[in-house]
């Protein structure tokens, strides 16, 4: 039962990821991106990481894709259809790149990745308390650094937007 659900979610995530990049209509891309995040969230839930699964739902599906859609809905699709996409990669380069990535993935799988089946986990593994303990007691420095980085990025975006506005006005 567990393996079957795992397989279904895995296949679903791969299919939806392919559909995200292959759709021409960006609203459908956003829809499949949502499906992709939902199936990844399901995979996390099956690994026992329920907090990560819920944050995946809450942040990626509940906020980030909504913002994507907000921008997409303001696009003019007639203009978009006329747009000819220049080929970003030739098929040969794409093939080499994907084979290299596949090889990279094979290495850890071959050399014995611990089984995906959660066997010997404590009862509250993946709960909010568990994550909080790890984050704020074991790695507080890394968390603080990450938050400073995010604030810097936010301030940077703000400054860039202001510079653009000034240039337009003068």
């Amino acid at each position: 039962m567990y393996e079957i659900m795992w397989l279904i979610l895995g296949i679903l995530s791969v299919i939806s990821a392919i559909l995200v990049v292959s759709r021409i209509n960006p609203v459908y891309s956003a829809l499949y991106l949502m499906l992709f995040f939902a199936s990844v969230s399901g995979l996390f839930a099956f690994l026992g990481a329920s907090f990560v699964a819920v944050t995946q739902l809450f942040i990626y599906i509940g906020a980030i894709i909504v913002l994507f859609l907000f921008v997409i809905m303001m696009l003019n699709f007639e203009e978009l259809k006329k747009l000819q996409r220049p080929p970003l990669f030739s098929p040969l380069k794409g093939l080499i790149l994907s084979l290299a990535l596949f090889g990279l993935l094979c290495v850890p799988i071959y050399f014995g990745l611990p089984s995906a089946h959660p066997r010997h986990l404590p009862a509250d593994f993946g709960s909010a308390k568990w994550i909080a303990r790890d984050m704020y007691i074991q790695y507080p420095f890394a968390i603080e650094l990450a938050s400073v980085l995010i604030i810097a990025a936010l301030a940077g975006a703000f400054v860039i937007a202001r510079i653009g506005k000034k240039a337009k006005n003068s």
Binding site: S50, F51, V54, T55, F58, G62, V66, L69, M73, S127
Partner: peptide, 21 residues
């Protein structure tokens, strides 16, 4: 669930898609 109230918040945030789509 292990995550209790967070699950509620996560699921209710999905309902915006119905309106948007």
């Amino acid at each position: 669930f292990h995550v209790g109230i967070l699950f509620f918040l996560a699921i209710t945030s999905l309902s915006v898609y119905g309106l948007t789509f």
